[in-house]
Design a protein around this nucleic acid. Sequence first.
DNA 1: CGATAATTTGAGACGTTTCAAAGCGGGTGG
DNA 2: CCACCCGCTTTGAAACGTCTCAAATTATCG
Lengths: 251, 251
Amino acid sequence: MSPRDRSSGIASLLVKDVRPPWDGQEDAQLERLLSDRTRALSKGALLVMESEASPARYLVRSGWLAVAKSLPDGERQIVEFILPGESYDPTAADGQTSFVELEALCDSNVAVIDTTTWSRLMKDLPDLRRCESQLAKAAWARQAERMLRLGKSDAETRVAYALIELCMRMTAIGATEDGAFHVPLSQQQLGEFTGLSSVHVCRTLRRLNRQGLITTEDHMDINIHDLYALADLAEVDLTMLRRDIIPGAAA
Amino acid sequence: MSPRDRSSGIASLLVKDVRPPWDGQEDAQLERLLSDRTRALSKGALLVMESEASPARYLVRSGWLAVAKSLPDGERQIVEFILPGESYDPTAADGQTSFVELEALCDSNVAVIDTTTWSRLMKDLPDLRRCESQLAKAAWARQAERMLRLGKSDAETRVAYALIELCMRMTAIGATEDGAFHVPLSQQQLGEFTGLSSVHVCRTLRRLNRQGLITTEDHMDINIHDLYALADLAEVDLTMLRRDIIPGAAA
DNA sequence: CGATAATTTGAGACGTTTCAAAGCGGGTGG
DNA sequence: CCACCCGCTTTGAAACGTCTCAAATTATCG
């Protein structure tokens, strides 16, 4: 990790509104198409279940979706969070079945676009296509980043990384204020994301707290006080991470 | 995991040649284009380094590539293997930089196709596009499967799963014989893939051996003797896994 | 205000890593 | 063709980190 100027504000690394506001920039017809297919989900609702037929793409317009997968013994891993403006296609190689489960983590609005329609949109709307291509690259980069830590890091690093990733993504959509943001997660769910037990998530959060890196308020309002120390713990280079996982954030 | 007919042969679940032989089915022009851009790599060669500019897609024509990522302290995670017929684009959200490292695990031939050319191919060759779309879905499903085990499983399950995944993918390209196949990996590298130390990979392999599930010969010639027991250990439903991660394997 | 879920903390069990040393195997040069 | 060397595998023993179980505390919601 290269040395960085620690005096520069958080804003320089976590700039707001860097994500191209793709909806709205295409014609109003797209907006109508999406509105027509948007479903309201309440917290905890299962949008799609594992192994269920679901040849569609899900586009989150508000709220959070968890992409999760379970072992026969009930252990659950959250593989990805879908934030507003992002989309996910859970279709497996057979083109029919979903290989994951999609759950609303809070009250949400999600547009459901069947594969055929989506292909047509991709063909007809070059701006949308470019935007989704960037988002897809970002998603790949995030997954690699997480697998690295899932496989090779201890609890502190995993939690620190998760917080940084979420903070960056939230900042990109203008959902943070000075390193403070809300995530609609229980410690249990943060554990399912980081591959830790909820008990150990709690201990780790507490430790970060004691070190003065973060504070948390009611049910996961997170305040990052020392982003740079947190980044060191997460073994992350903020500039590189942002370049890799935030669309339109090119240095 | 639902009960299965254990008397049916391995072949019924791990059918050969299910992958659409996309190259050759498009016109000879594509073949020429690929040949022109194919580079020979010797074992251990680094094709792309992390953070290096690389706006291209890499298509493996023969050999194996590892997609890997490292922590500052040197810990390494292999995020994906690219087998013959598969491709990978390591470009991050900025459209320029690679977020991973690409390494040849054995002597290989890889076609390097810059992003622009690739986009053109995708536009012009619907068969290729469909095929790559299936392969991409399979890759997403595999990653989810692995993250689940990376986060929530013990060593035995992780190793068993890795062996099964590799066996299935090898079978799909006709590179196995009766559950026997060769992987160009050291135990160290299998550890980097499964998130284990090489020492523990060794112990785990030995244990599977003692249980009569597998045998190994010189440098990773793997023989799966009891696929169903191995699948139970891996906590995997073979039929579902194949449907999810093998293109063209729809039940 | 009571019921229920989520967080917090402690103590012990368990699985994996680390360190260290020995054994094997393949390749090279004598 | 053998001797040597180097890298990979194998095994043991101790240290470490995380999980599990259990109980106390704190939030949340009707």
